[in-house]
């Protein structure tokens, strides 16, 4: 026996396609009326708590209630902040101990990178255009003068900050065991900072840069053994193959020197400096965080190693 209620059965009343569509559409319209207001209400509730959305949770991996755990996670689960430990010695945050000079140096490096990249958009490292580009930058590019000024002064500030950082590290004896190696990395970074600043000096292609670089590279002429005017130089060292020639890409400060200076300034040294900075920061953590302020040690407490 076929089911009597089967709408398509022989005994039941057959329902036409049109009717089926009609009821279907009716149901759909009914659901619009009932489901959507409910969903909308739900949605409004959800929007009130954006931190519960999937998008938010996919970006931020932890909750933000003010708990010690979340404070720690805020630092540790952030790629830019995770160089910090979660907690530090209460006295380490004292400005009077660190002077903040290492951090300021790094911040100035970031400022210099940003302003430097913007300057690169307007600058051609060629004898024909370099000086004109600087004039153009100063007089026609919106905020161009401010951009160049900021790059220049940030560079000078960075040299000052590096020297003061080194001064502080020395005065607090922070180069002592186990931080000897990191002090050396720091010395290399000091040299790289000076070289960065010096290579940038030539780029405006004005009298100031030209003569400063001429004076500077003339000293390379006198390199013992490798400069054509230096002591102990073999006979085959001439002005056309000595170390100064290698630095300038020629025997005078000219187009090649400008290009070499530009590439060292914008690409070569920043990459090398970045690698050493990574090493420097990593070693700060690995060597036990910043050196102090540590508890004072008395002379009588030092145990002399037996010889």
């Amino acid at each position: 026996m076929p089911d009597e209620k089967d709408p398509n059965g022989k005994n039941g009343k057959s329902v036409g396609l049109v009717d089926r569509i009609k009821t279907g559409v009716k149901e759909d319209l009914e659901s619009l009326k009932t489901d959507f207001p409910a969903k909308a209400k739900e949605q409004v509730e959800l929007l009130k708590k954006p931190s519960k959305t999937q998008v938010f949770l996919s970006i931020f991996r932890h909750k933000h209630d003010d708990t010690p755990r979340n404070r720690a996670l805020g630092v540790l689960s952030n790629v830019f902040l995770h160089l910090h430990p979660a907690k530090i010695n209460r006295d380490s945050v004292r400005y009077s101990y660190t002077w903040g000079m290492g951090g300021i140096t790094f911040y100035l490096f970031i400022v210099l990178t940003l302003t430097g990249v913007l300057l690169m958009f307007y600058y051609h490292p060629s004898k024909v255009q370099a000086f004109r580009d600087v004039l153009y930058l100063e007089h026609d590019v919106p905020f161009g003068k401010l951009l160049r000024n900021m790059h220049r002064w940030a560079a000078h500030l960075m040299v000052i900050a590096v020297e003061l950082h080194m001064f502080r590290v020395f005065l607090t004896g922070s180069y002592k065991k186990p931080r000897e190696f990191n002090w050396n990395v720091g010395v290399i970074l000091l040299v790289l900072t000076l070289l960065l600043s010096f290579t940038g000096y030539l780029l405006p292609d004005d009298q100031l840069g030209f003569w400063a670089v001429t004076v500077g590279t003339n000293m390379a002429r006198a390199t013992p053994g490798l400069g054509n005017e230096g002591p102990f130089a073999p006979k085959f060292i001439t002005p056309y193959n000595d170390v100064r020639f290698g630095l300038l890409g020629g025997s005078i400060v000219d187009a090649n020197a400008l290009l070499r200076s530009y590439i060292w300034h914008c690409i070569g040294i920043p990459i090398i400096a970045s690698i050493f900075m990574i090493l420097h920061f990593w070693r700060v953590r690995k060597d036990g965080g910043i050196s102090g302020p540590a508890a004072v040690v008395l002379d009588s407490e030092i145990k002399e190693a037996k010889k």
Binding site: V75, L81, H84, P85, I88, R90, V93
Partner: peptide, 9 residues
């Protein structure tokens, strides 16, 4: 010890 966030950051 104090938390790095917010005391140092």
């Amino acid at each position: 010890e104090v938390h790095v966030w917010p005391f140092l950051l």
